[in-house]
Design a protein around this nucleic acid. Structure first.
Ligand code: SF4
Ligand code: SF4
Lengths: 137, 137
DNA sequence: TTAATATACTATTATAAGGTAGCATTTAAC
DNA sequence: GTTAAATGCTACCTTATAATAGTATATTAA
């Protein structure tokens, strides 16, 4: 139930941007606000750009802004675009080949807990987050 | 929603042992059955022994067996004994200081999903796993 | 008492994730 | 054009996790 730093960063960045989705954000601004290391954030932003969630404008007065509306971006899209959601939705015991037909001892117990997790990430879009009145990113 | 290898191993080992809880298992036997690397498994077993979930008998004809009954071992006890459950129950965005009073934008959404996860690990004991008819460890 | 077969301990190595550095490229203002 | 300010790329470094190696210790059977 822990995400990688990479996914943490991506969620923090995009949820911050979602507060004012039409704005153009520079890397510098994001770094100072979110305290994420410079080059690592830029790598992530390039990735998010390539996957089509945001677009980037190079050159002077450049920056990043949403390519899709926050209402169209599911939390799972964000994780998918930086590392792949299947890293978290797969088997809790690390087995490769799993199914309801050939389960391990934990399957039943695990599937129940996982359901809620997957549900949350695949049905909640960025705008559904508690963006109003919160300033913690 | 992914556990470390360390926790994966601990769960696999103990759930395997729980099929026949009175038996004494040698490290060799566990390694061959579960395909976990030799020395790493032994380190884990030593840790599980020190935390009181199992006991070890040294010397010839030695091995490991349960110190507590599977009915008394919660899944969270297992994770706790090898690395600490708080690694998974903390903040999904990685913040240190969090509360319902000072939440981030994801808190509400996150807490719902986390609830089920914590519930599962803190209320299910080893014997509640699907031990019958399953041979995948 | 000796040999065989276990676990315990500690130091080292390997791998993957996260973070850094430097330079290239793009664009707008002047 | 030149310069300033932004993103893009690639190679390298650091840290934490996982895996391994070697040796010490414990116990039992012959
Ligand atoms: S059966 Fe389910 S819980 Fe067990 S290893 Fe497969 S996916 Fe994981
Ligand atoms: S408010 Fe909740 S979700 Fe947000 S950082 Fe804190 S614990 Fe995590």
């Amino acid at each position: 139930m822990k995400l990688s730093k990479t996914s943490e960063y991506a969620l923090r960045i995009l949820s911050y941007m979602a507060k004012d989705p039409s704005q153009l954000y520079t890397a510098k601004q994001l770094i100072e606000t979110l305290h994420i290391s410079d080059k690592y954030l830029r790598q992530l932003m390039t990735g998010l750009t390539k996957s089509g969630l945001i677009y980037s404008i190079q050159g002077r007065d450049g920056g990043y802004s949403f390519a899709k509306k926050p209402t169209e971006i599911f939390l799972s899209d964000i994780v998918d675009s930086v590392e792949g959601m299947n890293r978290y939705t797969g088997c809790i015991l690390g087995f490769e080949h799993c199914s309801d037909d050939n389960p391990c001892v934990m399957h039943k117990v695990w599937v129940e807990a996982r359901k809620e997790f997957i549900q949350t990430f695949t049905t909640k879009t960025l705008d559904k987050l508690n963006l109003e009145g919160v300033n913690k990113f």
